[in-house]
Write a protein that binds this DNA or RNA. Sequence first.
RNA 1: GCGCCCAUAGUUCAAUGGAUAGAACACCAGCCUUCUAAGCUGAAUAUGUAGGUUCGAUUCCUACUGGGCGUACCA
Length: 568
Amino acid sequence: MYLEEIKNKLGEILGVAALDFVYPPQIEMGELSLPLFALAKSRGLNPVNLAQELSQKLNNDINLKQYIIEVRAVGPYLNFYLQTESLLAGVINDIQVNGNNFGQQDNGSNNGVMVEYSNANTHKEYHIGHLRNLFYGDSVTKILNFCNYHAIPVSYINDFGIHVAKTLWAFQKGQNKFHYQELSKSVQDKGYLLGQCYADANRELTESPEKKDEIVAIMKEIESRNGVNYKLWEDTRAWSIAYFDAIYKHFNIQFEHIFYESEVIDDGLRLVQEFLNKGIFKKSQGAIIADLEKYDLGVLPIVRSDGTALYPVADLALAKKKFNDYKIEESIYVVDIRQGLYFKQLAKIFELAGEKTRISHLGYDFVALKSGMMSSRSGNVITYNQVWEEAYARAEKEVASRHEDWTEIQIKETANSLAIAALKFEMLKVSADKVITFDIDEALRFEGYTAAYLQYSGARLASILRKGASNVKKADLSLLSHVKEKSLAVFLERFADSVLKAGEQKDPAVISRYLFELAQQFNDYYHEVPVLKAEANLVLARLALLQAIQQVFKNGFSLLGINYLEEM
RNA sequence: GCGCCCAUAGUUCAAUGGAUAGAACACCAGCCUUCUAAGCUGAAUAUGUAGGUUCGAUUCCUACUGGGCGUACCA
């Protein structure tokens, strides 16, 4: 990395770390800067005087001349004006050499980590809250891999909880109802149908709580793996799983393995017995609980007083299974932040049991609606189906209105890419610790800080490259001398900083912001500086710069799971 | 009650303790015989309150106010 080399060289001379360097807020202040407060303090000097002294020393250093034109002392800062020719050549060369790997980091040291996300429940609908989880988990996995972790994406489907019994209960009662019949005609809406049943069941149970016994009876029948309800469970479970698979395929998200609660629940029940014997769990009020009061972690119920299993039973077994079946150092759970206490409890239980399962909770905040909290129970949700249909319809309309000459396939494929990118980016561009209040009009905009803006910038760039000459390797990069070319070069190198930060914070929003700023800089550049209409040799050099920008776009897009479009 | 999170422009979001707090949307004024106007240029608008630490605080600490979430049989 060209910029990294300069920082390291200067760092050695000055006795500071590469990380101490900052980027000046104004283009006139140079390309690189070093605040001297800390250094001055450690030497007992005034930072302003130190800046003067060091700038003279550095300006007299003959060895730096090939990299740095001038060092200026501005108050307590040292500002570096980089040698334009070697900067642009250095950066473009970096990108050409590294290609798809440009920006990769090594903080993962190839350690295996399992990333569990998209923990949907069968027999409930898939809504935009699930989409945030899906896109976030997918992007974090990609970022970790780019930081040289061996990140293994897995999903855990809860197909065996009490919600299943509720849904089947309502499903059977409602099977003959008109709207159920209507809905179940369409295969792709079967997942949606089950979600409706779940909401119906909760509504009815709120009115008549005494009917809970019927639910428990169904749950026990399913747990016994026998009888009518077990058969019905198998069928409806398959609907949900097919529905989820279709969603993953649609968004081009792959899991290395999908775990199911029904497959680990028996191991879980054995583990409960073991922990009961060890005294980690105990019986209380007819239920089995983990009493963690003395660790300030409250009480975690494990098995209900009616004998049916709660969520932790399977989760305990699954956590162990992951470490048995895979070579991993850590198991990361991408789960709504509201379950933070639960994961602390889980970790404590393993600690008490002397297990080596190292689990960590990667929380993110939830998706709400203007009408309030989303809730599967109440049915106040925007489902995947609803948001997708709307997103696609809007994208198709936009594309069609701009390209009357395109074939239908071309329009559809482009609209599909745009709609997918729009939804992903809406979920990823906001920091994980922020609640997203989802507004469909806001989310499906195609201007401003959106995926469409990024993709449009990329398409404009691709268009120029298509029209220009091809062999940019022969370009004379020393011709690039525009101040905007210089700052673009510095910004391209900063992609690596963003990857590093995104990896450390496990936050795709860092990449999103970087790409947006890069797109802004690129737009600003090509509006002001003609590429194809410049003098012949300069055209080639500028095309080389554009190709480097395109590479960084592509690398960044892929971390977010967004398609780079050649045309739109 | 206890615990956790959040509070920046009309709205949605940025800002490893550092230079004049940045964007986007909306609003207003401009730019398509000029590499795709999903774009560009310009104008206007903000750190909840009170203290503390620091050369320096949107950032760290304390209290308060307001909002959200969690807190034994949902996940």
